[in-house]
């Protein structure tokens, strides 16, 4: 244990530098979304403290943007927190999928990594984990950099909101759909995932249209994933690699 610790200390600085470098494209991607969030939040009437508070304590962009119209409409805290839970439940799956790569990490390190897990950092960490091992210093530095970029960009967006009257004219209301498109498209490379996405989209839209509210998303996701699993089971293993 002691030896482990010395070795780990000596390698810490270069690993942290690698982590920060790895976070740069992610931080760059966060800026337009974070700024759109800060700007829309400002126009919803939130204070700069609330804007920063959401980013620091929730740190989940899609849900932060999604609840703004709910807050504006005076929705109950239960419906807001419930919708957040549903939308952010996907982190459970990401955290579960990273878990096997963290078996040599300390409990504190694991909790720190998991608490700052996002769709984008998960993408980077799982690519690293597939290459071999996940270095705690590097991985935590990556997450910390992304966290700082997100919070900073949301405060900058708030400041911009004081100057820009109409976020829609600037297309900023499209930041969230665009982020979903950016995250979804690379996942749909095989037939099961494409089936899951199409079914999820159809079911969720139909239920929204019928007035189901945010529950439509989780029902759509569950039905979509199940439909995708059917395709996985039906299509022979060899057929999988042929799908584009």
């Amino acid at each position: 244990m002691n030896q482990e610790r010395t070795r780990y200390k000596r390698g810490a600085l270069p690993a942290i530098a690698r982590g920060i470098r790895g976070a740069l494209p992610i931080g760059l991607g966060y800026f337009p979304i974070g700024m759109a969030y800060g700007l829309l939040a400002q126009q919803t009437g939130l204070s700069v403290w609330a804007v920063a508070g959401f980013s620091l304590f929730v740190f989940a962009g899609a849900s932060q943007i999604m609840v703004l119209p709910l807050i504006a409409a005076g929705a109950s805290i239960w419906s807001i927190v419930g919708a957040t839970f549903i939308v952010n439940l996907r982190h459970l799956l990401m955290s579960a999928s990273l878990s096997p790569s963290l078996s040599s990490w300390s409990r504190t390190q694991r909790v720190l990594l998991a608490a700052t897990l996002t769709d984008e950092s998960f993408g980077a960490q799982s690519a690293r984990a597939a290459e071999g091992s996940l270095d705690p210093d590097e991985a935590l530095a990556l997450n910390a950099t992304a966290y700082i970029a997100w919070t900073l960009s949301s405060v900058i967006g708030f400041t911009l909101g004081l100057l820009i009257r109409d976020a829609r004219a600037w297309g900023l209301d499209f930041a969230l759909p665009a982020m979903f498109i950016g995250l979804l498209t690379p996942l749909c490379h095989a037939r099961p995932a494409l089936t899951a996405a199409l079914c999820g989209a159809g079911v969720s839209t139909a239920l929204f249209r019928a007035g189901f509210g945010s529950g439509a998303v989780i029902v759509g996701a569950l039905i979509g994933a199940t439909a995708g699993l059917f395709v996985t089971e039906l299509v022979p293993e060899g057929g999988k690699s042929h799908d584009a």
């Binding site: 999604m66 996907r90 999928s97 979903f180 996405a197 998303v217 569950l222 979509g224 995708g228």
Partner: peptide, 18 residues
């Protein structure tokens, strides 16, 4: 496998109504 398919399904379910 089912858990992995949740990601595309939920992202599409969030996106399309928008």
């Amino acid at each position: 496998r089912w858990l992995k398919l949740i990601a595309p399904a939920i992202l599409a379910a969030l996106l399309t109504p928008e």
